[in-house]
């Protein structure tokens, strides 16, 4: 087991290094000129060539790629992610304040979509082929085809513009000092975006849970339980839930990537000041340092989720522990169980 944990952590570090390299390469391949981006177009035109060259040297714009990458990486690891151009602050600070908003949003949506998805999946699986199943399946397929941002637009239109129940975006009332924003204000502003985000996360987990429950209900032990005269509710509780919960939780950890992606769109629609909205602002405004920082942080979040999912599987499910031991002796490593489960749900 310790060997397995160590292997997972090494894999995490290697993947993060690769992500940082890809992100840095993409950001530096951009046609956006770092000198011009940092001092402004008017200033560049009015500047002498000599001064421009000096500035380019100061920003390290003419250094070879590997040198720039290593400089950026070593500073990044020490917590210095550079200066954000658009927000006129240190990238680490921007990310820290924004992450609080985003994490609150994602955490609510993550829990809500997990619980709702599990419940719907159990209902659909237990009543396979009958109307609750058809309803849930139809809802899931429809939801999987619906762009998250459009769902957000419609929610804004119905609940904010027509009914006036919720505010038209932002995370706090307009015109109120940050220190005077109460928790109730924040909660009031987070409801609608969180609702939209959780609705779009339901489909995956509901369909996966349904498949699992159908498998369980077709097993020999459930047939035996039925022959003993157990009712459907009892069977679902005794045999279904125990088999369902762990894969569902694992799947939910593995779906952090989609939740983050969805949060980018939802934050943009609701003008909600989170990481996603900052990433869009950075990308549109040529703020390379902030964009790279957020990309790396988001990848860390996703890999962290996968890491937790894999460790959880290994720690909780005795069958998995045996499989890992076999896996390790095969020398094949333990290739992402969580992502496999996710793939299965995706295909199903």
């Amino acid at each position: 087991m310790p060997k397995f944990v160590l292997r997972q952590i090494v894999r995490f570090v290697l993947l993060m290094l690769a992500v940082s390299l890809v992100v840095f390469a993409l950001v530096s391949a951009s046609p956006v000129d770092p000198v011009q981006a940092n001092v402004g177009q008017a200033a560049v035109i009015g500047m002498s060539d000599e001064k421009q060259a000096q500035l380019a040297a100061y920003w390290g714009a003419d250094a070879p790629f590997w040198e720039r990458y290593l400089n950026w990486l070593s500073a990044f690891v020490q917590g210095d992610m550079g200066e954000s151009l658009r927000f006129n602050a240190r990238v680490a600070d921007v990310i820290a304040t924004r992450a609080l908003n985003s994490l609150a949003l994602m955490a609510i949506a993550w829990v809500a979509s997990g619980v709702l998805g599990l419940a719907l999946g159990i209902v659909a699986g237990a009543f396979r082929g009958r109307w609750p199943d058809k309803l849930v399946k139809g809802y899931c397929y429809l939801l999987a085809s619906t762009p998250t941002f459009w769902l957000g637009l419609v929610a804004l239109m119905v609940f904010s513009v027509w009914l006036g129940w919720f505010p038209l975006g932002f995370s706090a009332p307009v015109g109120v000092a940050a220190s005077e924003v109460t928790l109730a204000d924040a909660a009031y502003h987070i409801v609608l975006p969180a609702l939209v985000l959780s609705l779009s996360g339901v489909a995956n987990i509901a369909l996966h849970t349904r498949e699992k429950l159908v498998d369980v209900l077709e097993s020999d032990y459930v047939r035996f339980a039925r022959a003993r005269g157990e009712k459907l509710g009892v069977i679902v509780r005794r045999h279904g839930l125990r088999n369902l919960l762990l894969p569902a939780i694992t799947l939910q950890f593995a779906s952090l990537s989609e939740i983050f992606g969805g949060s980018v769109l939802v934050e943009q629609v609701f003008s909600y000041p989170g990481l996603g909205q900052a990433a869009i602002t950075a990308g549109l405004g040529g703020d390379a340092a902030l964009l790279a920082g957020i990309a790396v942080v988001s990848a860390a979040l996703v890999f962290g989720g996968n890491l937790i999912a894999n460790l959880l599987y290994g720690a909780v499910d005795p069958r998995m522990r045996v499989a890992f031991r076999k896996d390790a002796s095969d020398g094949r490593g333990s290739h992402g169980n969580a992502s496999d489960a996710k793939e299965a749900a995706h295909v199903g």
């Binding site: 993409l26 951009s30 980018v264 964009l291 988001s298």
Partner: peptide, 14 residues
């Protein structure tokens, strides 16, 4: 590992 939307933003930016 990189959220799909973020990856698309990065590539588009590049």
């Amino acid at each position: 590992g990189i959220p799909h939307i973020v990856l698309l933003v990065l590539i588009s930016y590049a």
